[in-house]
Design a binder for these strands. Structure first.
Lengths: 234, 234
DNA sequence: TAGTGGTCTAGACCACGAA
DNA sequence: TCGTGGTCTAGACCACTAA
């Protein structure tokens, strides 16, 4: 489809307009379609193809009879992020202490969640996660070793999600479950809280495309953590 | 734009194709563009406009050189639903007992959340919500009286979200916060649980377009409720 | 080779908004 | 009245896929 040497005209126009309006205030006018026809010496349908893409993206908004304008940014559902980015968003410095990082054979539950067969090799990574120096969460992550070759052999990353990103495996879909519970004795020790104190249990199954990249169980100190979720759009 | 008497051609083609493929299995071929050009005696660009819309909607998928096919349904983020639909989804019968339903003056927090001024009239509706006969949740909802005229004067609905729907105020955006905690004595009595038992606190601010339609605080028995959330798409 | 979608042209008329 | 976006035409050539 895309000729090798040259850039498609509608892409040229699209990216020109995108750069023009990037940074413009919502409501600012974009060039009119006929104006762009003259500037680029292209047909109007070509310009419309370019603008259509930006409208679908939510960058532009058309008002018949008036013109095309910079759209106000859409509200979008929560992005899928890991602990590190979540804490950064709250202005907290995150640190982690690896309690366990090894190759294991998948049990029935983990195998099913990772779309693997029982006994397949998985990476089990257990960390105590702190924010601004205070124990916040105990996290057990299970990863598909096939998708992360050499993961345990090289230095463990600070952010698992950065490691996904670097491998083109940024999660695009997540199924989370959230429940309240009381801390087990072992959890209480790690989280430096009293036994039987309240905790928030957060489980996640994250996919990149069709690949299950992460299955995890986290337990948060209830007194230090509130989960925020945005749903819907527009 | 839209002439009164007749239907736009690209809309005709679009709806024809939509009805053709509705119910078809993912991967089934849709008519080719040139085929539709002949059937409808329209230009190819008109057919493409129709098909483009269906592709953006996620109904169709184009494969260059091969044809256009029915797309597999997209995974989408959690819909914004209320208690009634949430329980129905779990196969549970929900019932509610109204503990309080009255007009109040908005306090500072509720006023800010509802985009109102302190002292404005709001509806405060407190319900004990049960699933399959068992106490599940204690919910305090605050509503903008202006958006729900006559709400308290007529029979209270079973489902608040049905009432929104009937008024064209179905929430399209929600900001939720979720935390673990221990039940207060009062909550424990209503929820028929021991004092200091674990609960899940779920707060919501729901918008329909730009209008804040609901601000609520719910407290769930931790032993009976786990929250499920899906994020992302594709 | 025949068919498909992707790109592109050079026009046209319409309804609507602002001046 | 003029400019805007919305619709529509009747073609064209391209790259790709499958037979």
């Amino acid at each position: 489809m895309a000729p090798d040497g040259r850039t498609l005209k509608h892409v040229q126009v699209r990216e020109y307009v995108r750069s023009l309006v990037s940074g413009s205030a919502p409501g600012s006018p974009a060039p009119s379609e006929r104006e762009l026809v003259h500037q680029f010496s292209v047909a109007r349908m070509t310009v419309r193809q370019a603008m259509d893409a930006l409208v679908v993206e939510g960058v532009l908004e058309r008002i018949p009879g008036r013109g095309t304008f910079v759209a106000r940014p859409r509200r979008t559902a929560s992005r899928i992020v890991g602990f590190t980015e979540e804490m950064a968003r709250r202005g907290l410095l995150s640190e982690s202490q690896t309690l366990l990082a090894r190759r294991e054979q998948a049990g029935p539950g983990v195998a099913r969640a990772l779309n693997l067969t029982e006994g397949d090799a998985v990476i089990h990574w257990r960390r105590l996660r702190c924010a601004d120096g205070a124990a916040m969460c105990l996290e057990d992550a299970y990863l598909n070793e096939v998708l992360l070759p050499g993961f345990l052999q090289s230095a463990l990353p600070t952010s698992l999600y950065d490691a996904f990103e670097a491998r083109g495996l940024r999660p695009t879909w997540a199924e989370d479950s959230i429940a309240a519970d009381l801390a087990s004795p072992d959890e209480a020790v790690h989280l430096e809280m009293e036994r039987g104190g309240p905790v928030l249990r957060h489980s996640r199954r994250a996919l990149a495309g069709e690949k299950v990249v992460e299955v995890s169980r986290s337990v948060y100190r209830a007194d230090r953590y509130t989960l925020w979720v945005q749903l819907g759009h527009a």
